[in-house]
């Protein structure tokens, strides 16, 4: 299983992390962090489905503690990862785990996170692909792909002409350079999720500006994963 993404020196020499497993511990922390950012808030409820090796060997690797630590926004090198179950209880986050089968094509270290906060609910599928590197592979019913190695902007919008033009206009206004962009959609004329990855930091008021467009369902800033 080769990784087609661009690999940085610090994907290989790094992360700096609390052990024992880069894919089962550090990668799990990062998946939790991305899940939290996609929800846009700290979850009040997290239903976590573990697939393959995550289900089989996750407990011994502390993957459960690591996913929760990520949902609580801890970093991969935070010694409190060990106590995250306790921290979640204190923070009022209800967490349950179960085993899921995401199909033969799913990476062996995959997780399905159903996260809720207030009225918000999101389903996120992600995989820990080795060395602590991760990939988000689905949001709600959309197949999607991003890694958190860049600043990322997700925009769920009605699939109609002119939306990309309007969004890229905002990028110009905020003087942000787009490194990569993609559109994922279920069917023509339905909803689409647009992914923009940037080099510089995405300002929070840009999210508000995006959500002012009547055809934008929601927008999220996914901060770059740092270690």
């Amino acid at each position: 299983m080769s990784s087609k993404r661009l690999v940085s020196a610090f994907d290989i020499i790094g992360p700096i992390m609390v052990g024992p497993s880069s894919s089962h511990t550090a990668g799990a922390v990062r998946l939790g962090r991305l899940g939290r950012a996609i929800l846009g808030a700290q979850p009040q409820q997290a239903i976590l489905g573990l697939h393959g090796s995550f289900a089989r060997t996750g407990k011994g690797h502390g993957s459960d503690r690591a996913l929760i630590a990520g949902l609580l926004a801890l970093s991969t090198d935070d010694p409190r990862i060990r106590e995250s179950l306790e921290l979640a209880r204190t923070a009022g986050m209800a967490v349950t785990f179960h085993t899921v089968d995401l199909g033969e094509d799913a990476h062996p270290n995959s997780v399905e996170m159903i996260l809720r906060a207030g009225e918000q609910e999101v389903r996120v599928v992600g995989a820990s692909v080795g060395g602590g590197m991760v990939e988000i592979q689905a949001i709600n019913q959309y197949p999607i792909s991003f890694t958190g190695e860049h600043e990322t902007l997700l925009v769920a919008a009605e699939d109609r002409p002119g939306t990309i033009h309007a969004i890229t206009g905002l990028f110009l206004k905020y003087r942000l350079n787009i490194a990569f962009s993609r559109v994922e959609r279920k069917q023509r004329g339905g909803e689409a999720i647009q992914i923009f990855e940037t080099d510089a930091q995405i300002p929070e008021d840009m999210i508000e500006a995006l959500e002012d467009f009547y055809w934008v369902l929601w927008a999220r800033h996914i901060p770059k994963l740092l270690d």
Partner: peptide, 12 residues
Amino acid sequence: GMGCIVATPTAG
């Protein structure tokens, strides 16, 4: 021992 290390390339 869940101590702090640098994964090079992995923790293992």
